[in-house]
C-alpha cells in the first residue's frame, strides 16, 4: 500500500498543489490528471525523493508502513518511468537490465535478465545497443528494467506520451498488465484521458491547486 498523507507542494512560497491524502492499493493504478505546470510531475519527484531545490514538499509518504521521507531516492523502493525511456546509451540492452538486478549469484542474475527479455518479446536482444531498438522496444525494456529492481511501488510520469498513437494503446495494456501481475501500487501522471486504465480511479489537479475526484 502506498499512502500519501497530507502531501502538497509549495513553489516560491505559494501553494502549487494543496495538501491531499491518497491510498493506492497493491495492483491498483491511480491516475493524477492536470494541465502542464500544475505540479503533477513534481509531485512524483517529491514522492521519489528528488524534488528540485526550488520547490518544497510537505506531508508524509508511507510505503507498506515505512515512512519514506527521510530516505534517499535509492532506498525508497520506488520504480519510475518517464516520457523518455532513459536507457543508458553506453550500455547494451542486457547491461541496462542487469544494472537493476539485485546482488545475487551471477547465474541467477543473468537468468532474471533473460527472463525479462522473454517476457517483453525481445529474446536475444541482450547484446544489442539501445539505439538499434525501435521506440516501442525501448519502452518495453525500460519497463522491464524498472520491474527487475523489484520496486514496492511504481511512479509513471506520462510514460506513453512520446509514443506513436498505434503503439500507445498496446504499450498501455502491456504496462498495466505487468503492474497488476506484480501486485504493486502504481501512481500515473498524465494529461491524456485515454491513459486511464479501465475502471481506474482518477484525481484531477484543479487550477487553484486543489484536488478533485473525477
Amino acid at each position: 500500500m502506498l499512502s500519501l498523507r497530507h502531501i502538497g507542494l509549495v513553489l516560491n512560497g505559494k501553494p502549487l498543489v494543496r495538501p491531499f491524502s491518497l491510498d493506492v492499493a497493491p495492483g491498483e493504478v491511480v491516475t493524477l490528471m492536470g494541465a502542464s505546470g500544475s505540479g503533477k510531475s513534481s509531485l512524483l519527484a517529491f514522492i521519489a525523493g528528488d524534488l528540485p531545490p526550488a520547490m518544497t514538499g510537505q506531508g508524509d509518504v508511507v510505503l507498506n508502513r515505512t515512512r519514506l521521507n527521510p530516505l534517499p531516492p535509492e532506498r525508497r523502493g520506488l520504480g519510475r518511468l518517464f516520457q523518455d525511456d532513459y536507457l543508458f546509451p553506453h550500455m547494451t540492452v542486457g547491461e541496462n537490465l542487469l544494472f537493476a538486478v539485485a546482488d545475487l549469484p551471477r547465474a541467477e542474475r543473468l537468468q532474471r535478465m533473460e527472463q525479462a527479455l522473454t517476457d517483453c518479446g525481445l529474446e536475444g536482444f541482450a547484446p544489442r545497443p539501445p539505439h538499434s531498438l525501435s521506440g516501442g522496444q525501448r519502452s518495453r525494456v525500460a519497463l522491464m528494467r524498472a520491474l527487475l529492481a523489484e520496486p514496492a511501488a511504481i511512479l509513471l510520469d506520462e510514460p506513453f506520451s512520446k509514443l506513436d498513437r498505434p503503439l500507445r494503446a498496446s504499450m498501455r495494456s502491456f504496462t498495466f498488465e505487468h503492474i497488476r501481475n506484480r501486485g504493486i501500487p502504481a501512481l500515473l501522471v498524465s494529461h491524456d484521458p485515454e491513459d486511464v486504465p479501465p475502471g481506474g480511479r482518477v484525481l484531477e489537479i484543479l487550477e487553484d491547486g486543489s484536488l478533485k475526484n473525477a
Binding site: 535509492e74 537493476a100 524498472a146 529492481a149
Partner: peptide, 14 residues
C-alpha cells in the same frame, strides 16, 4: 539526458 538517467538509476537502487 544525464539528469533523467540519474533519476532512473537512483530509482533502481544505485
Amino acid at each position: 539526458a544525464l539528469d533523467g538517467q540519474v533519476a532512473v538509476a537512483r530509482s533502481l537502487g544505485h
